[in-house]
Design a binder for these strands. Structure first.
Lengths: 241, 241
DNA sequence: CGTCGGGTTGAAGATTGTCAATCGTAGTGG
DNA sequence: CCACTACGATTGACAATCTTCAACCCGACG
């Protein structure tokens, strides 16, 4: 079958090439039909759907940025993960075998998204039956746990400056292997509200801290891009607490 | 072969019965030898070893409490996960297939521990080859991600009272299915320093907040046990922020 | 021209951290 | 049995960090 533009982009995605591996693992036509690969776009600001044609879907992000979040009882929001191109969108939700519904971690688009979706149940079965594929998924999940622990430690023990520096550096570390950064500059399609929710601060304080970082010659965050003036100073700011 | 006392306890461990599943999945003697099941004890306060006989080991906690932590550049500690009986100790580390060494998340014993250990590499292979077993491991990893996100949101957006109430309640939710709680009371072998490191506060402030919670009739934490006076009030304290 | 969403800034207050002293309890060695 | 010590918990005073509330700016857009 002829694949649309997004498919080609998705099939050639870097970082483990999960889409490629999935396609490589599919055997006959029935197999492929069960996986039910389909391409979806989501507009900036919109929710990424959990279901499509009434089955839970596993999505891989082909292009654009998204984030996963929790809403606390008092209504405040916490962003628990940024989802970048080539990543699985909801790894744990997609691969969960539990029948009982769990607390949800909804996903929202920061920019317009192009997604490659599979039937979550079929994908899970396929992975369980294909060790090479499962090994990739394991490593994705493991990386997600590690990232979550890094963030936990940062939120628990770092100052506002440290947390923001940490956020910006950890995003950069993920973008570099994807070739999505320029020299000392990369796109960061986050409003100050998103940064605040991602590092556990108020927007007002985020604004102040970003001013400090700008004035002390560390970096500038504005117009949806980060520009480093002094990467080492940023790393020191992140380390200082 | 005759198994020691811990082995029996381990083989009958609840919560998915991972040890049972692992043993059930082993075929012949060579198979069993490769897994290299061995029982280890660790004294309270000691580090849980990553290696044993020079191979990476995957441990399941048979009895006792442990915790995983990060040390930040400035020397402060953040506890990212409490490890309770029947749980895998270092799920991501044990199942990682990556050759490159990652940031470590060391494990320390809160009480004396009894552990059941396997060769990490063999266990990973065995799981990849045994879908039923892999499904269990997937669910363990997924639960770990969920817990990490819960903690992230709590640290980001809750007050000191809220974080401590959250900690105590989330531990209780894990202990209840194991039958490790009494009526409104359960053991919590944490010093105030551990609580502080687990919720991102100082010991001084933890002491103050625990006094508040005690005086307002919510709960008492002392002598290594939590006693709830009013569970709903505790849940409200956790929800309030 | 008005308004709306983001960002910035100021002042005041709440929360949490830091520093330091004190207390109780459990060893430990004389 | 009695210092002496070590560790954890508690308390007070004070300082730093962060939040809250409010005003204002600015560019986009109808």
């Amino acid at each position: 079958m002829a694949l649309p533009e997004q498919a080609r982009r998705c099939l050639s995605c870097p970082a483990g090439g999960l889409c490629e591996a999935i396609i490589a693992a599919t055997g006959d036509a029935a197999d492929r039909a069960a996986l039910d690969q389909r391409f979806v776009t989501v507009a900036a600001g919109q929710q990424v759907p959990k279901f499509e044609r009434s089955t839970a879907r596993a999505f891989i992000l082909c292009s654009g940025w998204a984030f996963r979040y929790r809403i606390l009882p008092d209504g405040r929001r916490s962003i628990v993960r940024l989802v970048l191109p080539s990543q699985l969108v909801s790894t744990e939700a997609a691969f969960s075998g539990l029948a009982v519904p769990q607390i949800d971690t909804p996903v929202k688009a920061l920019t317009d998204l192009q997604l490659c979706g599979y039937s979550a149940a079929s994908l899970r079965e396929k992975c369980l039956a294909t060790p090479a594929l499962m090994a990739l998924v394991l490593d994705v999940l493991i990386a997600e746990v590690r990232d979550a622990y890094d963030l936990t430690a940062a939120l628990a023990r770092r100052s506002a400056q440290g947390r923001i520096a940490f956020l910006v550096l950890s995003v950069m570390k993920k973008l570099v292997p994807e070739g999505l950064t320029q020299n000392r500059r990369y796109p960061l399609p986050l409003r100050q509200q998103h940064i605040a929710d991602a590092v556990g601060l108020t927007t007002v304080h985020v604004s102040r801290v970003l001013s400090q970082l700008r004035e002390s010659g560390v970096m500038t965050v504005s117009d949806g891009t980060v520009s480093f003036h002094d990467v080492q100073a940023c790393e020191r700011a992140a380390a200082r607490g």
